[in-house]
Design a protein around this nucleic acid. Structure first.
Lengths: 162, 162
DNA sequence: TATTGTTATACTCTATAACTATA
DNA sequence: TATAGTTATAGAGTATAACAATA
């Protein structure tokens, strides 16, 4: 990746002698910058905690379970905007890693109560510290108003048409 | 705007009942807003052009081929930051849809020259118009300087640690 | 009947490694 | 040897549909 943060020349690939790549309207698009930033974030995240490769989605699950102990599978799925079936493999993986445990509800035997384990809390603490550190890297040197602008625009993008 | 920027601190029952979900540090994280915005953008994109479900990645390929006719598979892959093998299914799909064609290079028989077709240009024009319209929705009411701030921050996120 | 969680299945995106045909 | 493109394979991540147990 180029060292220049300016969108106009940040993506010019090495032109290997055949002339510079033309990027068309791409460099000016907020949407594309968003995509590149997301993909980068996603890749980095997996390496944040020694030995465990967890995704931003797993961090979100752990954080929600930490704040809402005993949450059901269904409620968790809808909280993070997934189909309940899509959550199954993620939970299974976290359970396999002993970061989360499931217990059948006493009051409704269909339902599972999900809880983060002590080990899960430790991993979550590491992830949180990584996330917070990264947040401060991202917003380093930015005025508070600029950070707010960023969050507002991202929220707007996440919410457009719905 | 669907997401509140402030963590909820009403003490609500978590395990059972339908009390408000506690979101922990999640709502304050730029990284998470980024993820939500990206996922949303990705989903919307697929529905942008009638009948063809194309991704932001396909748009990028078409745009680059439109600006750089005859680009090789390898150069295209490195321009968009993918392994060459990862590009194969995407190109195959675009060729299947008759939006792109491949031609063996005369000067290096190992190499393919990729070109966008007239039909591809028409689809690209539709995608561009969707993208531009969405960009203007996103940045509606923003000062030019704020949009620049956003792009700069996203570029920074895309480039951190590398 | 409706809901909870699960399984079965499928599709997209991406990566690594091995292969082919050139160079 | 090295490179361009492909194939084979694998692994997340997500979705729909069907199912069993329970409500």
């Amino acid at each position: 990746m180029s060292t220049s943060p300016a969108p106009q020349d940040a993506d010019t690939p090495d032109s290997d002698g055949k002339g510079a790549m033309r990027m068309g309207i791409l460099p000016s698009l907020v949407g594309r910058q968003l995509r590149l930033a997301y993909l980068r974030t996603f890749k980095d995240f997996a390496m944040a905690v020694e030995g465990t490769s967890l995704s931003p989605g797993s961090f979100e699950i752990l954080e929600l379970l930490s704040c809402n102990p005993g949450l059901s599978h269904s409620r968790l799925a809808s909280a993070i905007g997934l189909e309940k079936s899509s959550l199954v493999p993620a939970i299974a993986r976290l359970e396999e890693m002993a970061l989360v445990k499931r217990k059948q509800s006493a009051t409704d035997k269909r339902s599972n109560e999900l809880r983060i384990t002590p080990k899960g809390e430790r991993v979550l603490a590491e992830l949180r510290s990584y996330v917070v550190q990264r947040e401060s890297e991202i917003t380093e040197g930015m005025a508070r108003a600029e950070v707010d602008t960023l969050n507002r625009l991202l929220a707007k993008m996440a919410g457009i048409n719905g």
